[in-house]
């Protein structure tokens, strides 16, 4: 595992959404298995990227970490304290130190509040400072994320997508949190703006030693910011490890196919668009055995019968675990 004390630890995290008929006594209609038995450990100052297709459970993971969803089973520990078993005041204190940036910078900003009001809201919620103190911190944070002071009286719809995301980031940063969870913060933005926002995230990390959980469907986009990467498939972590190791020596066929889908600079045009065949698995009725087996190019009999457990191979880099029966045979290099 990578160094430093754990800021946040996830253990056996499982989240199911019951499907229930509406009404007072609605009948249950099964459940969506969004997350199953997820273990994670994020060290202070580290950036973890969680990558996977849509529907793999990565947003649910983000929302559990941000206390928007209560897990069905398992625990999330913040500095050793189980946040869902902590008493109310302690939970609120943790909330102050864990902030989130959402995917859609328009949807995540209240259209009836000015940029200044939006950025200052966390201070009001936690009753920090008086009016002048709040104004000072709002202006300071806004300038840190590259917003012009003169624009702060405007409403969200008067900003571009990139600027709106800057507002959302300022709101997350103003409390000087320890952890920021960013749920696909780039995917709603123009490509030209994406790198600016990515640079802003890295700049903030450099300034204040932030820890990030960066959720993305695009492995390529997180390569430059992530220290470690966890790959989610069908609600489970199928491979996790240091970012460079994963790119250089992935030991899971699913990760390998994701890497191949990344357009490579220097390789000229997007040559190797070898996309994955088949559909993402159903979350209501996930496949038995290894969840990836219906789409896996290297599928064998055992994959249909038995679910592989994440394991570190003897010759892997430290902290590089893969949940594939044939992890030791696979080596992308």
């Amino acid at each position: 595992m990578s160094g430093g004390p754990a800021l946040i630890e996830v253990e056996g995290l499982t989240k199911r959404f019951e499907l229930r008929d509406p009404g007072l006594f609605g009948r249950s209609r099964g459940a969506v298995h969004a997350l199953t038995d997820v273990d994670l450990r994020i060290a202070r100052g580290e950036t973890l990227a969680v990558v996977g297709e849509s529907g793999c459970g990565k947003s649910t993971l983000a929302k559990c970490l941000a206390q928007l969803h209560a897990p069905t089973a398992g625990a999330i520990r913040f500095e050793g304290e189980d946040i869902f078993r902590a008493p109310g005041p302690a939970r609120k204190a943790i909330r102050r130190r864990v902030q989130m940036v959402f995917q859609d910078p328009f949807g995540s900003l209240n259209p009836r509040m000015t940029a200044a009001e939006i950025i200052a809201e966390p201070l009001l919620i936690h009753r920090i400072g008086d009016a002048s103190e709040r104004n000072r911190r709002t202006a300071e944070t806004a300038s840190r994320v590259g917003l012009r002071a003169g624009d702060l009286g405007r409403y969200p719809h008067e900003f571009s997508g990139g600027q709106r995301q800057r507002i959302a980031i300022a709101r997350a940063a103003i409390l000087e949190p320890d952890l920021i969870i960013a749920d696909e913060p780039l995917s709603a933005l123009d490509v030209s703006v994406q790198s600016q926002i990515l640079n802003l995230f890295m700049e903030l990390r450099r300034q204040s030693g932030l820890t990030y959980v960066f959720i993305s469907h695009d492995l390529g986009a997180v390569r430059h910011i992530a220290d470690r990467i966890a790959v989610l498939y069908s609600g489970r972590i199928v491979e996790a490890g240091p970012a460079e190791t994963l790119f250089a020596a992935s030991r899971h066929p699913y990760t390998q196919s994701l890497i191949e889908a990344v357009p490579r600079p220097g390789a000229g045009k997007r040559l190797q668009w070898k996309t994955l065949g088949g559909d993402p698995p159903s979350a209501i009725d996930p496949p038995g055995g290894c969840a990836f087996h219906p789409r896996c190019p290297k599928v064998r009999d055992i994959c249909r019968r038995e679910r592989p457990r994440p394991a570190v191979q003897p010759d892997s880099a430290p902290g590089h675990a893969s949940a594939c029966h044939f992890a030791e045979e696979l080596n992308a290099t």
Binding site: Q99, M100, E121, I125
Partner: peptide, 11 residues
């Protein structure tokens, strides 16, 4: 999402 955002902030 802005309601979710407010919840994350601890509102």
């Amino acid at each position: 999402e802005y309601v979710q955002a407010a919840k994350v902030q601890g509102a």
